[in-house]
Amino acid sequence: MPKITIIAGARPNFVKIAPIIKAIEKAKVAGGKIHFRLVHTGQHYDKKMSGSFFKQLGIPEPHVNLEAGGGSQAEQTANIMVRFEKELEENPADVVLVVGDVTSTMACSIVAKKLNTQVVHVEAGIRSSDQRMPEEINRIVTDSITDHFFTTSEIANVNLRKGGVEQERIHFVGNTMIDTLLSNMERFIDPEIKIRGEALQEKQYFVLTLHRPANVDEEEKLKDMMQAIIDGTGDLPVIFPVHPRTAKILQNLGIEHHRLHYVEPLSYLEFNFLVKNAKAVITDSGGITEETTVMGVPCMTLRDNTERPETITMGTNELVGTDPKNLKPYLDKLMSGEWKKGGEIPLWDGKTAERIVEKLLAIY
């Protein structure tokens, strides 16, 4: 019976591991010999990540929370490693399963390997080729010591093969984030945002998310970007679920407009209701580009690179860049009804977690 320790450190991690836990429980009911322990590193404190968050996604409460958040990159990495080492020594596993590219992913992988425990990386092989991003360092380090790689796309497979990984250790399974999206689509919750007393109209508003330092830390650039967004979105409202850190920056800069509406961060089911019914999304997030592609919602990514190029080549996403001047032609194209439709991405079908658990049972 393989004993698997599943690591999650931030909200997107839990969205990715939710279907894996469900698939493990389903396999156990069918007689599969598999056991898991869920470890929350506590990397990110998120007041929305309460018991109701776990309930919404059908995830059991973590077996342990290491409470290793806060501090600099180095301090956080060290705290996670020290606390996870103790956790893994007290609760040995055959496999440590990590997802995505947060600090917890890298830190727990290093600890596992030093304790001679196998590492499985879900969402392995994705690359932005930009080592200024902490996530890119986390991906490279994690993949350099991973035993089995579960990938979301053929592009990721190619990246791994170029890095010398043998084909038999690469398992193209699809995208667990899409499993969660598809299984919850009928359960999305209308956040009931009202503009001057009126409810939002379907496809008659934009959703905006910004959090990356390249976009929010340079004041003049942020001002110019916000102005470009306001100028290019016609007379439609722009709904901005804003992180407290970003909210403070925007407040200090006095960035306001009657069509720009700041709202509190939303729950998973509320945020995706908003996205599904939007005219378009403007974002600097990677994960949102995957969700918009599957929901067929136009998306503009305010970054100079992406680790998810399939959302551009096969999906509804376009890479705009971080220069505010780049945005206008994309918004013009959207407003004139000329945005690309996008198509289906192989194995983004809601069955990824089942393939992962099937493969884990075959390997271990």
Rank of each mutant, 00 (worst) to 15 (best):
A8V: 11
R11Y: 12
N13V: 05
F14H: 05
V15I: 15
I21G: 10
K22P: 03
A23Y: 02
E25D: 15
K26M: 13
K28D: 02
I34M: 11
I34C: 09
L38E: 03
H40A: 05
H40F: 05
T41C: 09
G42Q: 07
Y45I: 14
G51R: 12
F53E: 14
G58L: 06
P60N: 04
P62N: 11
H63P: 03
F84M: 11
E87Y: 03
D94M: 04
V95D: 04
V95M: 14
V96S: 10
V96P: 10
D101W: 03
D101A: 10
T103S: 10
M106C: 05
A107S: 15
C108W: 10
C108K: 04
I110K: 02
V111E: 08
K114Q: 14
L115S: 00
Q118N: 05
V119A: 09
H121P: 03
V122A: 03
A124N: 02
S128R: 13
Q131H: 13
Q131S: 12
P134I: 15
R139F: 01
V141Y: 09
F150C: 08
T151N: 07
N157M: 05
N159V: 09
N159P: 06
R161N: 00
G163W: 07
V165S: 03
Q167C: 00
D179H: 08
T180L: 09
S183M: 11
S183I: 02
M185Q: 15
M185N: 12
F188G: 01
D190Y: 05
I193K: 13
K194H: 04
L200A: 05
V207D: 06
L210Y: 11
H211D: 11
A214Q: 11
A214S: 13
V216P: 02
E220W: 02
M226P: 11
A228R: 08
G234D: 06
D235N: 15
V238H: 04
F240I: 15
P241D: 08
H243V: 11
K248T: 15
L250P: 06
N252W: 01
L253P: 03
H257E: 04
V263W: 00
Y268K: 08
L274H: 00
K276F: 04
A278V: 09
A278S: 15
A280H: 13
V281Y: 07
I282C: 06
G287D: 07
V297G: 04
R303L: 06
N305A: 03
E307N: 10
I312L: 14
I312P: 02
M314K: 11
N317L: 08
E318V: 12
G321L: 13
G321E: 04
D323C: 12
P324T: 08
K325R: 06
K325F: 01
N326D: 10
Y330S: 05
L331D: 00
M335D: 04
W339A: 14
K341Q: 11
K341D: 10
G343Q: 12
I345D: 06
L347D: 01
G350E: 05
T352M: 10
T352F: 00
R355Q: 08
L360C: 01
A362T: 07
Y364W: 12
